[in-house]
Write a protein that binds this DNA or RNA. Structure first.
Lengths: 245, 245
DNA sequence: CGGAATGTTGATTATATTCAACTGTTGTGG
DNA sequence: CCACAACAGTTGAATATAATCAACATTCCG
């Protein structure tokens, strides 16, 4: 789908920057409560890599070398339906991580992880993570909680994907991402990716996405200006979304 | 469908049967590796209740008293989309459990749990489970693994619900539940609930379900006899499903 | 037996996809 | 810095897919 980056370096050579790695790890869910020496140890095993836009960071069906975290840039987790269609399970931004479940169970990667922009990616290898969990009960509990969070999020996703109207799904999505503009109290949404990508996240085609945004606009609920969306009627949008948080 | 509890009392009074509870708990994922005294302790806190078909065992949005497990009967976890529609997230049968994620995070129940037949339900209260996790690292790890399993299953669900053709979804579902008939080597599927219920699990209406089964039949892939489905062409069915396990 | 739940079938309709053509935007190499 | 290619987004018409509505058949239990 995307390429066109003509001269990617042939080899993406991994490197290690303890400052970056330690800062990243201490901010990662489940890892954020580890003591210094444990963070240092993990950082010593971890690697950083640079990927260009469109590059595959981890491929579905292949072993996952470890927990993956984004230092910079953004990426998508894609599920491929059995046709050529792609559906996005999750969008990752700087600070987000992926792979806990597969690493813990030593399973192959369940999705494709593809860079949406040039990005810097950290890999915390599986073995040290699993070993740490074995000897640090607090970490095991934190990991369990992180996984429990993800379970509830996924159930929410499943629920969202069940509500048949794509307009409702979009309204729900926009409502969930609404944030206050800094100055005044107006609500705005910053889309974390292109509209086409968001469309795939919501399970619709880009053409449909375009029509849906137009529909919301014509109802006076939002105002679209390129990647910025102003919410004109938050209550109306929430009502359309169906009263979920 | 299945029953055996003949005359459920008007009031559902909880009771405790250590034999039943201990046998159940030692078979539950994550709990299955606990030592005897720990199982006994949990059993001492746990309760059994009888529910009639159609009764709500746990309601969405309300606090969940603990991990719920089915001793007998079957139940459905339903997501309600914002119209009146219901989508089934999971079907539970005897031995299945539910609620780890919500219990661990002390969150409200994310779904409705409704009895599909009269059933006997065990509740293992939240607090003892959380405390046990705090002092037994092995249990915490086992719980994390159980949750990781669920994460991967849910990703699979999301993936399945993304593939647009309902015929593919049904083929995939039947393929995943295929089992060898005892005598000969023929493949059969025993539906764990009524066709209407399975339809809701697959995200289609019962009318569509009926037509889909007819379509598979006319293609010579299956043969439907009430609740029993014989798979005549496993390879063909798998090909239709899209080559997933 | 009788009533309720379950399942089937046909006709019609809503919803989103597909196909196709076109415009706008962006980043890069010349 | 401009020109161009690749990407991103828009719009319209035709089409596919499953939902809905309505009527009827069947099965299961009490």
């Amino acid at each position: 789908m995307q390429q066109g980056i003509r001269s990617a370096p042939t080899a993406i050579r991994p490197f290690r920057d303890r400052r970056i790695l330690e800062a990243l790890i201490t901010r990662l869910p489940a890892f954020d409560q580890l003591a210094r020496p444990e963070v240092d140890e993990l950082a010593g095993y971890s690697q950083l890599r640079v990927y260009r836009r469109g590059a595959t960071i981890a491929a579905r069906g292949e072993p996952l070398p470890g927990v993956v975290a984004l230092v910079e840039g953004s990426a998508k987790l894609t599920l491929r339906s059995n046709n050529g269609e792609e559906r996005i399970a999750r969008l990752l931004e700087a600070g987000d991580s992926f792979g806990f479940a597969a690493v813990l169970l030593e399973r192959d990667c369940p999705v494709d992880l593809v860079a949406l922009s040039n990005c810097v990616v950290a890999t915390i290898p599986s073995l040290p993570v699993r070993q740490l969990m074995g000897r640090n009960a607090g970490f095991a509990v934190a990991l369990a909680r992180t996984l429990a969070e993800r379970v509830l999020l996924l159930v929410g996703e499943l629920e969202a994907s069940a509500q048949h109207s794509s307009l409702q799904r979009l309204a729900c999505y926009l409502d969930s991402r609404a944030a206050q503009a800094d100055g005044n109290g107006a609500w705005v949404v910053r889309l974390p990716a292109t509209k086409s990508t968001i469309a795939a996240r919501l399970g619709v085609k880009k053409e449909t996405m375009s029509r849906l945004l137009r529909e919301l606009t014509s109802r006076g609920l939002v105002e679209v200006a390129g990647p910025q969306i102003a919410i004109l009627d938050r209550a109306g949008l929430a009502a359309l979304a169906g009263g979920r948080a």
